[in-house]
Amino acid sequence: MEEFERKQLLERIDREGATVGASIPETVTVQGEEVNLREFVFEIKRRDRVPPGERERVDRAKRNLRRERLQRRQRIERGEVGYEEGRALAESIVGIDRALEALQSLGPANIEAEARAKEAADQKRWMSFLKQVLGDDGGRRGRS
């Protein structure tokens, strides 16, 4: 592969918005094991948030996908592949990035974060209620 072709492929991978319009690959080989990536992502995305029992599975999948992405990118960087194989690797990297984005956009990462978010929302509603009942000045109307 020529140097300019290698740079072109790397630019494609690193481009902001590279995943726009990209589809998640049906299957991908990660760490020597074939994974039904599209099915896995859609299965997880069907839910509003990942149940606590599934969180470890999703986190492990994300770690493995990031590792696989890095290895594929390094093969292109080092020029270990020809242009056609590099192009296929670049497209698979963009698909992996698309899957990672979908998995990252799931609900709170853990129960503590979810509890903190609910508590903050409760406090905000309570303060809003108090302001409404007492008036915007905190009930100090008419005092001099």
Rank of each mutant, 00 (worst) to 15 (best):
Gln8Lys: 15
Leu100Trp: 06
Arg38Thr: 02
Arg12Gly: 00
Glu80Asp: 13
Ala109Arg: 14
Glu16Phe: 06
Leu100His: 05
Phe4Met: 04
Leu130Asp: 02
Leu65Arg: 01
Ala22Asp: 01
Val20Pro: 00
Ala109Asn: 13
Glu84Tyr: 08
Glu33Trp: 12
Ala109Gln: 11
Asn36Tyr: 15
Gly107Gln: 10
Ser92Glu: 09
Ala18Thr: 07
Leu37Trp: 11
Ser105Trp: 07
Ser92Leu: 09
Glu80Cys: 08
Val30His: 04
Ala18Gln: 06
Glu11Asp: 11
Glu112Trp: 14
Leu103Thr: 08
Ala120His: 13
Glu39Cys: 03
Gly86Gln: 04
Leu10Val: 03
Asp122Ala: 12
Trp126Arg: 03
Asp97Arg: 02
Glu101Ile: 02
Phe40Gln: 09
Trp126His: 08
Ile111Leu: 11
Gly107Ser: 10
Arg78Gly: 08
Arg143Thr: 03
Thr19Glu: 05
Gly95Trp: 09
Met127His: 04
Ser92Met: 12
Arg6His: 07
Glu56Gln: 15
Gly82His: 07
Val58Glu: 06
Glu26Asn: 08
Val30Gly: 02
Leu130His: 09
Glu3His: 14
Leu65Val: 08
Arg141Cys: 00
Leu10Lys: 09
Gly53Ala: 11
Pro51Trp: 11
Glu56Lys: 15
Pro52Ser: 05
Val35Thr: 04
Arg69Thr: 01
Arg60Trp: 03
Arg47Val: 03
Arg38Phe: 06
Lys45Pro: 02
Gly82Cys: 08
Lys131Tyr: 04
Glu33Val: 15
